[in-house]
Simulated assay, not measured.
Amino acid sequence: MAKAIFGAGCFWSPEEQFRKVPGVTGAAVGYAGGTKENPTYEEVCSGNTGHAEVVEVEYDPAKVTYEELLEVFFDIHDPTQVNRQGPDIGIQYRSAVFVEDDEQEATARAVKERLAAHGVPVATEIARTGTFWRAEDYHQQFLAKRRKGAFGNLFR
């Protein structure tokens, strides 16, 4: 198995989208790219930790390539926006690819350049992963829990 980390705005929807990709064996939401160790959701939302909300995708490279995951990533959010996705504004919502090694970095840069060559002004940050901090349990598979009514009358 291999791992990839993507920041595509609020992490709930990207987590769900990546879970649908054949060859993806798991996905977890969390934080990456910041300076504080073991940040909480509230700390990340303050914008003071430098973290982005991210999805750590575990996948089988024999069934889906890193490049294919990048194509999904660029398709499920707007990579042209800086520090926002739709109504969500702040550094924690930035578009980012956190790479594990030189091969992932080269692939990410090549896909980004391919988009730019087609006139897409990509603002996506490409940086080394550093530490992935897993988000609180209530954020994991949040949208699936919500659909199943796991939050009772909270959203009704």
Rank of each mutant, 00 (worst) to 15 (best):
P87S: 03
I91Y: 08
Q81I: 02
R84D: 02
T80I: 03
Q92C: 08
T35V: 10
E105T: 14
V24N: 02
D88C: 01
H139N: 09
P22G: 07
A110S: 03
Q92K: 11
Q85L: 13
G9Y: 00
A150K: 15
I91A: 01
V82I: 10
M1E: 02
A52G: 10
G119M: 11
E53Q: 07
A108S: 13
N83T: 00
Q81Y: 09
T25S: 12
V55I: 08
D88W: 04
Y93C: 05
L115W: 06
E67H: 10
T25Q: 15
E67P: 08
K148C: 06
G23R: 05
W12F: 05
Q140K: 04
G9V: 13
R109L: 13
L143F: 09
E68G: 08
A108G: 13
Q85G: 03
F142W: 00
D78M: 11
G50Y: 11
N48L: 12
Y93K: 03
H139Y: 08
C45P: 07
A8W: 02
H51D: 06
G152T: 12
Q85F: 07
E68F: 04
F6H: 05
M1I: 10
A123K: 15
E71I: 09
E113S: 08
E136C: 05
V72D: 00
W12P: 04
Q141M: 13
K20W: 10
Q140D: 06
H139Q: 14
V120L: 14
T25R: 11
N38Y: 02
A150S: 13
V97T: 15
Q104W: 06
Q104C: 11
A106P: 11
A27G: 02
E37I: 12
V55W: 07
T49Y: 00
K63G: 03
T65P: 04
H51N: 11
D88F: 00
K145S: 08
A123Q: 12
G152E: 06
Y138R: 09
L154R: 09
A106R: 14
A32P: 02
V29Q: 06
F73I: 08
P121Q: 07
D101L: 14
D137R: 08
V57D: 03
A2S: 13
Y59R: 02
V82M: 13
A150D: 15
G33T: 10
A4S: 05
R94G: 10
I5P: 00
E71G: 11
D101G: 07
P39I: 06
T25F: 10
V97Y: 04
G152I: 10
P39Q: 11
D101R: 06
V57E: 06
A123W: 12
